[in-house]
Nucleic acid binder design. Sequence first.
DNA 1: TCCCATACTTACATTTTTGATAGTACCTTA
DNA 2: TAAGGTACTATCAAAAATGTAAGTATGGGA
Lengths: 123, 123
Amino acid sequence: MGKIKETSTHFSNKEALENDCHEVYASNIIGGQWSIAICCYLIAGKHRFGELKKRLPNITERMLTLQLRKLEENKIVKRTVYAQVPPKVEYELTEIGLELGPIIKELGKWGEKHKVVCDSTTT
Amino acid sequence: MGKIKETSTHFSNKEALENDCHEVYASNIIGGQWSIAICCYLIAGKHRFGELKKRLPNITERMLTLQLRKLEENKIVKRTVYAQVPPKVEYELTEIGLELGPIIKELGKWGEKHKVVCDSTTT
DNA sequence: TCCCATACTTACATTTTTGATAGTACCTTA
DNA sequence: TAAGGTACTATCAAAAATGTAAGTATGGGA
């Protein structure tokens, strides 16, 4: 996630797809390596930056920041900064972010089932 | 989507996340540039390769092939080859693929709503 | 005075995904 | 004999996502 090149074919394809398919639009919002994992924790409630970092063992601060910024831009999470030293910042889901909760959970259930089905037919 | 490097940090992070989060597991399966769009059409029924290509105007044959192969590997779609010339190949959702249908539709509804909310607060 | 904790930022390297372009096989029909 | 239609594959290049490593600010406490 650096700057994107708005003249690339990739970019315009993505935009075009988003525009005539809400499903794709939605998946682009929550589809980063860590986005869904972050959401899973936030569904359970508010978290500080450092707490999220602990729960996502291998994430770098850079990636956590990037993903949170993206979620914030998309109004999925709300960021609250406390004027303290050392700093304290809390992240929580917005209203529309919360509405994503049940869908993500359904997806999780499906994933669990899928894993079983797939494993059994492979072996 | 070429060969992946199974020794990379990225790879092992992804695997670790998948293993303790079914939601992430699921999202990795359906999260490619075109996967959800393809699924959307297949939810409506069987399609030939060329039909999908027409419906996804800017997709290259390469990408369509890659995505379909990935979906097939993950047992989301079933591929049927007819021994004809010129060739005819049909793609359809499997049972577990069909179960994804309602979830994708919910995601679509959410996306539609999100778009409205986000646009109104931005302007 | 110096170190600490927290939540970042910056610059660069690597890996992964996607795109562009050309080619393949095969039988049918003209 | 040649062209056409379908579903691909192969190679190379570009772009995007992620990872690594180091640095920043600030006030409080030792």
